[in-house]
């Protein structure tokens, strides 16, 4: 569980400090890795790996859907602002 916490820490550090939108999403992905590791590790510890696997597969499917949507939003933001800098999003109007 220490490694899970380390992964989640790395992801949160990235989210708090980085400015590039793609980098921020890489941070989200690192957190997602920590969560899937936590699911499988807890299932392995409790001798209940089948349920843990099915939950992890559901989580991965949700993750893919979120990534696809978020990257599409990032491409649209780039077309609009010609930059991936998150600070430029504060200048949006309306």
């Amino acid at each position: 569980m220490g490694f899970v916490a380390a992964l989640i820490f790395i992801g949160i550090y990235c989210l708090l400090t980085m400015r590039n939108l793609i980098k921020l999403f890489i941070g989200v992905e690192v957190i997602a890795k920590g969560v899937s590791l936590a699911l499988i590790a807890s299932g392995f510890e409790r001798n209940n790996i089948y349920i843990a696997q099915s939950l992890t597969i559901t989580f991965i499917v949700v993750e893919v859907s979120v990534v696809a949507t978020a990257l599409a939003i990032i491409i649209n933001i780039y077309r609009h602002t010609k930059s991936l800098d998150i600070r430029k999003l504060t200048r949006l109007k309306g």
Partner: peptide
């Protein structure tokens, strides 16, 4: 899915945006 598909999605987004030098961390 994660190592394959999501990496492909990331690489395509990086190729479509092409401005990594724009944002200075």
């Amino acid at each position: 899915v994660v190592a394959g598909l999501i990496t492909v999605l990331f690489v395509s987004t990086i190729a479509l945006t092409k401005s990594d030098g724009d944002v200075r961390e």
